[in-house]
Amino acid sequence: MANTKSLLCGLIVGGLIGGAATLLSTPTSGKDVRNKIKNNRKQLEDYLQLLKEESTLLKEQVLKTAKEGSEVIKEVSVDLKKSISQFQQEIEPHKRDLQNEIAELEDKIKQLENTLQHS
C-alpha cells in the first residue's frame, strides 16, 4: 500500500508541477490553456479511478489467494496427520517384534557371559 500511496502522491505532485510549468511557459491564449487543463485533469481523474479499481481488484485477489492457501495448508496438515497415524499403526507390530528380539538377544548375551565366567 505504501508504494501505491507514493505513486499516487507522485502523480498528483507531478501533475501540479507540470500544470504550473505549462501555465508559466505557454505561448497560447488563456482559453486554450484552460481547455488543455480541463482535458488533462479529466485524463488524470480517469487514470486515478482506473488505478483505484485495479487496486481494489488486486486486494480482493490477494485475499482470495490467502484464503485458498490457508485451506490447502489445512488439508495437507490433515492428510499428513492421517499418514503419520497410519504409518505408526503399520510399524507397531514390527516395533514390538524388534523389541522382543532385542530382549532375547540381551538374555542370550547374559547367558553367554555367565557361561564364560563359570568356565
Rank of each mutant, 00 (worst) to 15 (best):
K36V: 15
T56W: 11
Q49I: 09
T56F: 10
Q117M: 14
K74I: 12
K110Y: 04
D79Y: 03
T28E: 12
K67E: 12
D46H: 08
D107M: 12
Q61M: 11
T65W: 09
V72W: 10
H118I: 12
K42R: 02
E68V: 06
V72S: 07
I17V: 01
K36C: 13
T22P: 08
L44R: 11
L7I: 08
L44E: 06
L58M: 08
L58G: 05
V72L: 11
I12T: 07
E71H: 05
E113L: 07
K110I: 05
A66Y: 00
L80R: 11
A20K: 07
K64H: 13
H94Y: 08
E92I: 10
K74P: 13
A21Y: 10
K31A: 05
P27T: 04
S70F: 00
I73R: 12
D32S: 07
V62E: 05
S55L: 03
E71D: 02
V33W: 00
V62C: 02
S85L: 09
R96K: 03
L50G: 11
D97I: 14
T26Y: 10
I102D: 05
S6Y: 12
A21D: 11
E104P: 02
K31E: 01
G19F: 02
R41A: 15
Q88L: 11
E75K: 15
L98D: 04
Q117T: 14
R41P: 02
S55A: 04
C9W: 10
I84F: 15
F87K: 14
D79R: 11
L51W: 15
K5F: 05
K64T: 11
S77W: 03
I109N: 13
N100V: 10
K108I: 00
L58E: 06
E75M: 13
S70A: 07
C9A: 11
T56M: 08
K67Q: 00
A20V: 06
E101Q: 13
K52H: 14
K59I: 10
Q88F: 04
L105G: 01
E68N: 03
G18V: 05
S83I: 07
L50Y: 15
L7Y: 15
V76S: 04
